[in-house]
Simulated scan of single mutants.
Amino acid sequence: MQLLKTALDLVRQHYIFPETAASVIAAVEARTAAGDYDGLDDETLAARVTELFLATSGDKHLRLLVRSPDHRAATTESETEAAWAEAQRLGNHHIAAVQRLDGNVGYIDLRGVASPGDGGTAIVAAMELVTHTGALIFDLRRNKGGDPEGVQLWNSYLFPDSDTHLNDIYDGDTTRTRQFWVLPYVPGRRYLDRPVYVLTSSFTFSGGEEFAYNLKALRRATLIGEATRGGAHPTARFPVSATLEVAVPHARSINPVTGTNWEGAGVEPDIAMPAGEALQVAYRLALEHVVTTDTSQAVLAEAREALSAFSH
């Protein structure tokens, strides 16, 4: 099957762990020779090959995927990037909600991480809308990942200067390690000297996990919810047909504080609980902070009223 051969060639060329790539390729080739993939529709083929990828490698990023209908006309790298950027634009660069909750608590529901080149203005706008709040909640419970530079921009708002080392990524294609530090400049105001809470779930993945892991390692946020899904390998997607593409991890994250990453294990929360309960717990903690630190009588009254609902 030519498309599987193309997919396996890409795994061979780009997968971050060559020995694991060899095992994955051998497993798929054996199934192909046995006729296990003959006559399957795209969805079934993608699901079965991905299942074998995972069973052989343990890597949740290594996948055969059905291409989005909006991406099927894209055959070159530039066309694929343009289609991806358009999808992010129409999805508001993964920012589902930005709110000021009662009691002057900021809340950002972030479903993915856009690159600064595509979503930088939206990221800046979101942080500007919460800049005057007394505590901030990032909801990453439905975050499926995204761009490391986007994580760097979001995280940079939470530290005072560029002396903070966030993450490193070793790229197997180039054999180079790129360091990610807090940016020396961010548009608008940084969010400093106030607590940050990060909500996680078993769905939180990849760049969403890095977002949480960086802040936990640097003790800049309190993580609340469930252990995350466990994918720490930056990935590139390559079309193998008009309707299928292969996602191949070509790099790995190395946290400068822990010396490791969250691959396989996920990011453990500081306060473990079902994801559905995490927002209420974070909101209560945020309100408790506001009522003990804020000086505005109007904000204090609002925060006390909101906090009183938790005692009923």
Rank of each mutant, 00 (worst) to 15 (best):
P234V: 03
E226R: 04
V248H: 00
N155E: 04
K144C: 15
D118S: 15
E128C: 08
T50F: 06
G119F: 00
D168V: 06
T292N: 14
Y191M: 10
H93R: 14
H165C: 11
Y170E: 10
V248L: 00
W154C: 07
A126N: 02
E19T: 12
T258F: 13
P69T: 11
L65E: 04
M1H: 13
L158Q: 08
D41Q: 01
A303E: 00
L52E: 07
S68F: 08
A265K: 13
A122C: 07
W84G: 10
H71P: 07
V28T: 02
V257Q: 01
M273W: 01
I123N: 09
G266C: 06
R72W: 01
D36G: 03
S78K: 15
A242M: 14
D163N: 12
F53D: 00
G264Y: 01
R63W: 03
T20W: 12
D173T: 11
D294N: 14
G208M: 00
S23T: 14
A26Q: 13
L218R: 10
T50V: 07
T56V: 11
E128S: 15
H93F: 13
V151C: 05
V246G: 08
F203A: 12
A298K: 07
K60W: 06
H14E: 11
I224H: 00
D102T: 14
E226P: 01
